[in-house]
Amino acid sequence: MRVFINPGHHPGLDPGAVNRNYGVTEADIVRDVGVLVADYLTAAGCEVKTVQSNNLAGEDAAYTNVCLSANTWPADIFVSLHCNAATPAAQGTEVLVYSRWTQADMLASCIQRQIVGSLGTVDRGVKERPRLVVLNSTHMPAVLVEMGFITNDDDCQMLINQQDELARAIARGITDYITERGE
């Protein structure tokens, strides 16, 4: 199974969401979690490619095109990692898909179940987001994991201090999906 990991945003160019209280950026957190997820999946026998780039679908030719890389590799599964942002009260984990009742929805449910069950985050469910380029421009089951709200201090502490547990949960969700599909 070939798994494409896309830590969102781009350190130094696009920090993504920021928690100023803790001095952390989304781009840095998802990069670190992405490395761990890739390590766990490789140990589980998956072939893994990781690309964190400011170029999602051809917007910035100076950097690797994320969707094109996943499509031409070709990946069997695409997982984009992110930290959510909203008011300081918003918290929890959600996984976004192009549409429900698909293989991507099955993958999203496996990841969501593992994160919520392992880390006790608020379960915000699986949601459709068909306009997200990484979900509508990839040719394989694709999900975008909003691991927690970087703007919520409790979630942010989890994102900083429990990266290994978070990565293990995401990797287990992916391997659960692979097992359910019988591959």
Score class of each variant (00 low, 15 high):
residue 127 K to V: 05
residue 158 M to K: 14
residue 153 D to P: 01
residue 127 K to I: 01
residue 123 D to H: 09
residue 144 L to P: 03
residue 130 P to K: 06
residue 162 Q to N: 13
residue 155 D to H: 04
residue 171 A to H: 01
residue 150 I to G: 03
residue 124 R to L: 11
residue 166 L to W: 05
residue 160 I to S: 08
residue 170 I to S: 05
residue 132 L to P: 00
residue 137 S to L: 06
residue 164 D to A: 10
residue 157 Q to W: 00
residue 140 M to T: 13
residue 141 P to G: 08
residue 159 L to T: 06
residue 130 P to H: 08
residue 149 F to S: 01
residue 152 N to V: 01
residue 133 V to C: 00
residue 127 K to N: 09
residue 124 R to E: 07
residue 161 N to G: 13
residue 168 R to K: 14
residue 137 S to F: 00
residue 139 H to I: 11
residue 143 V to Y: 01
residue 134 V to A: 00
residue 165 E to W: 00
residue 157 Q to V: 11
residue 150 I to M: 04
residue 157 Q to G: 05
residue 159 L to G: 04
residue 123 D to M: 09
residue 125 G to R: 11
residue 140 M to P: 09
residue 126 V to W: 12
residue 172 R to N: 15
residue 126 V to R: 11
residue 172 R to I: 02
residue 154 D to L: 13
residue 171 A to D: 02
residue 133 V to N: 00
residue 125 G to P: 11
residue 140 M to A: 12
residue 153 D to S: 05
residue 139 H to D: 13
residue 140 M to L: 11
residue 157 Q to D: 07
residue 134 V to E: 06
residue 131 R to C: 07
residue 133 V to P: 00
residue 148 G to P: 03
residue 154 D to C: 07
residue 151 T to K: 05
residue 124 R to F: 06
residue 138 T to L: 04
residue 140 M to I: 13
residue 141 P to F: 07
residue 145 V to L: 02
residue 161 N to C: 05
residue 172 R to C: 11
residue 143 V to M: 03
residue 158 M to R: 15
residue 132 L to A: 05
residue 168 R to F: 09
residue 122 V to D: 12
residue 142 A to S: 15
residue 131 R to E: 14
residue 145 V to I: 02
residue 155 D to Y: 05
residue 161 N to L: 04
residue 165 E to Q: 15
residue 163 Q to C: 08
residue 143 V to N: 03
residue 151 T to W: 03
residue 138 T to Q: 06
residue 147 M to S: 02
residue 173 G to P: 04
residue 155 D to N: 08
residue 172 R to L: 14
residue 135 L to E: 09
residue 125 G to C: 11
residue 161 N to V: 00
residue 136 N to C: 13
residue 166 L to M: 15
residue 131 R to Q: 13
residue 138 T to Y: 06
residue 142 A to K: 01
residue 125 G to W: 14
residue 155 D to V: 04
residue 149 F to G: 04
residue 128 E to A: 14
residue 143 V to G: 02
residue 124 R to W: 04
residue 165 E to R: 14
residue 154 D to K: 11
residue 142 A to P: 05
residue 139 H to R: 15
residue 138 T to F: 08
residue 144 L to I: 10
residue 171 A to I: 07
residue 134 V to I: 13
residue 133 V to K: 05
residue 167 A to G: 03
residue 133 V to I: 12
residue 163 Q to E: 10
residue 136 N to F: 10
residue 145 V to F: 01
